[in-house]
Design a binder for these strands. Structure first.
Ligand code: MN
Ligand code: MN
Ligand code: MN
Ligand code: MN
Lengths: 219, 219
DNA sequence: ATAAATTTTTAGGCAAATCTAAAAATGAAT
DNA sequence: ATTCATTTTTAGATTTGCCTAAAAATTTAT
């Protein structure tokens, strides 16, 4: 199946919006995510349906068909591999790579994808801690535990970020927090749930909102 | 200037057809190279002219304007850098990389291009021995001497291939000839100008046609 | 110098992906 | 159960890149 760039982006958008529960996705949600108009989305949904990539009933919503999901995951795999390449091999900052990977993910060559994965040491997670599906589309397991759920006295490892906006990524980088770092919860302010943390020997204060966007694992 | 993929391919096609002498390029030549129709080319030439990227007079021909040439060389730089990456880092064969580089060359990010160049050690020549222009668009010098011009007794170094077709690249690879190898001319058959060569200790026979497509330098 | 062949452009269309504006369906509120 | 608001689709255009067929210009041959 030879997809256009636009079709690939629609599949990926539907994949993300529908989430792990594979919910029905609204036309407007797709339009907003792709920064386009609802009428444009309707056109594309009919096209994707005709190609058998989604199930779509007018006014009801859309969800990925099996083929569509396979393709979406394939594009996601490429996206995250390229992001890893850019950070690990070309020394890009983790806030710079998404935009470039949005282009690279559309390069068609399964041999390239697999050679790249191998060159990178078959990474399981991308620079933001997001799981990279393997060639068969299977994701490595990751606890979806965020820092705000931790308790005083916990010793934790930083596993990823939930919010991958440039602003948040820059903020986390400025704090010196990197994936794999260990953090100890020293206290939680009951007024606003902000946290006092020990990180690399020094003490940090993070808002509840920031904590809710950092993935961690226990010990 | 934000170019479409099609526009970039036209600029590159005109660049190659016009050659180092910057000759006027015919509509049909562009159509043939891009595997499209003359009428389509005419449309695009008017568009590129309006953008100031080419000078074009109906029925006369087209040539790149300064901006157009700069852009074409920039795409060529990316193409050859990606080819180098694929061969050097991902162990692709030199006959496989052109097609993939045709896609990668359109990825827009000057930071990516320069990081990639740096990662590769700022190579001067691509896997086919073709010169890689630097960031300013300046090409490294290469003698355009081919093996068929050499004489008996010459000691030579293989510098590149003139014909980059998959067939020829496979043939040269099968012979075991690689860039940088040294070759000694043992004899030239006066009947058909085929050459008897010493390469890596053994003796090779190459047709005049093959020899005319191998770039060499003297000692 | 004409005629024939070739090249190039023009005319008219088509498919993909987008838009705006209007109509229709759905869902929420009285 | 109507009415109102929101969501979604339809209708009608636009732009880009491509096509075929016909016309026009240029080049080549007689
Ligand atoms: Mn990303
Ligand atoms: Mn990522
Ligand atoms: Mn190439
Ligand atoms: Mn090359």
């Amino acid at each position: 199946m030879q997809l256009s760039l636009a079709e690939e982006n629609y599949l990926k958008a539907i994949y993300f919006i529908s989430g792990p529960e594979r919910n029905l996705v609204n036309t407007n949600a797709v339009a907003e995510r792709l920064d386009t108009k609802a009428a444009t989305v309707t056109d594309m949904l009919r096209k994707l349906k005709k190609k058998g990539l989604v199930s779509y009933e007018p006014y009801k919503g859309v969800r990925l068909a099996e083929t569509g999901e396979k393709l979406a995951i394939g594009i996601l795999r490429k996206h995250r591999l390229w992001e890893t390449f850019l950070v690990e091999k070309l020394s890009f900052g983790w806030e710079e790579v998404h935009e470039i990977a949005e282009q690279l993910e559309h390069v068609r060559s399964s041999k390239l994808t697999e050679r790249l994965a191998n060159f990178l040491g078959n990474p399981q997670f991308d620079p933001h801690g997001d799981p990279i599906p393997n060639k068969e589309g299977v994701f490595p397991r990751r606890e979806n535990l965020t820092l705000d759920k931790a308790e005083v006295g916990d010793f934790l490892l930083v596993k990823g970020v939930k919010d991958s906006s440039v602003d948040f990524l820059n903020y986390v980088a400025k704090l010196g927090i990197r994936l794999g770092d260990s953090i100890e919860v020293m206290g939680v302010e009951s007024f606003d749930q902000s946290m006092k943390l020990k990180h690399e020997g020094s003490v940090l204060h993070l808002s509840a909102m920031a904590c809710a966007n950092i993935y961690i694992s226990r010990g």
